[in-house]
Design a binder for these strands. Structure first.
Length: 260
DNA sequence: ATGTCGTAACGTTTACGA
């Protein structure tokens, strides 16, 4: 089963590019972030026509996550637990039924956190604390669990073309990186790094300053796999090329192949 | 030129978030 994550930066703006990528890459599941749409405004028919079940968790204007799946989805939940006052739509979970077994999928859009320091950075770190709590609970189920999405975290210097330019940014500050490492230390495997080593692999290129043409990118979209899911992974990759097409998102898809 | 894009709104332009 091919499972992808893709920050589309607005469903209205990606109304052509997203279906074109789906038709070509043919993922069984796509975790989407930044749909920037309320649930009722999401053009679900476009995806249902292609055989996808559609589950959304949106809000007006910003954020918003969704799951598209060709296989049945069950037990869908919306919102990251741990703060009932948090109204930002950044988390959705569902169980997808594979041919042999079920997988628990979590689609996440982790707060950017800039400017840092400041209240937005505090919110990012608090959100990561809640993510840690939820991730630990999911591990305890001993089921295959995948946490996929836009983490807004550059894990190491090798994950940026110009690491010094990001040193003070919320995406690379020591507290952000430490919170990400704490997740890994629970026992998750970072899918891409389990398969590919070394610098030069990115999932985001800013629209500004010709970042794409200079390959001035960062790697901030990730899949974290529970031990039971990591045992089933057979491949992982980045669909880099679509960043150079018409009307691209600033992110590109990351995908994993899971033998489920 | 302080570099772009997407969304919303008291819209033909500005503000915000990224």
């Amino acid at each position: 089963m091919k499972i992808a994550t893709f920050n589309i930066n607005g469903i209205k703006a990606r109304i052509d590019a997203l279906p074109a990528w789906l038709d070509e890459a043919a993922p069984d599941v796509a975790l989407l972030q930044e749909i920037k749409s309320v649930d009722g405004g999401f053009p679900r028919e476009i995806f249902e026509e292609r055989g996808y079940n559609v589950e959304t968790h949106g809000q007006k204007g910003f954020n918003g996550v969704a799951i598209l799946s060709k296989r049945p989805l069950e037990d869908v939940t919306r919102g990251l637990p741990g703060d009932d006052s948090d109204e930002q739509a950044r988390w959705i979970e569902a169980t997808v039924m594979g041919e042999h077994r079920a997988l628990r999928l979590c689609g996440l859009y982790l707060p950017n956190g800039n400017p840092a320091p400041g209240p937005k950075y505090d919110y990012k770190l608090a959100w990561m604390e809640r993510l840690h709590t939820r991730a630990r609970a999911l591990l305890a189920t001993e089921e295959p669990v995948l946490l996929g999405g836009d983490y807004n975290i550059i894990p190491q210097d090798e994950d940026a073309a110009r690491p010094d330019a990001w040193r003070a940014d919320a995406l690379a500050r020591p507290e952000s990186r430490a919170a990400f490492r704490r997740l890994l230390n629970l026992g998750f495997t970072e899918a891409f790094r389990a398969r590919v080593q070394g610098p030069g692999h990115y999932t985001f290129w800013d629209y500004q300053a010709g970042a794409w043409n200079k390959n001035d990118g960062i790697r901030i979209d990730h899949f974290l796999l529970s031990p039971q899911a990591a045992d089933l992974m057979t491949d992982c990759g980045i669909d880099k090329d679509i960043r150079g097409r018409d009307k691209p998102s600033d992110h590109v898809p990351l995908w994993v192949e899971i033998d489920a």
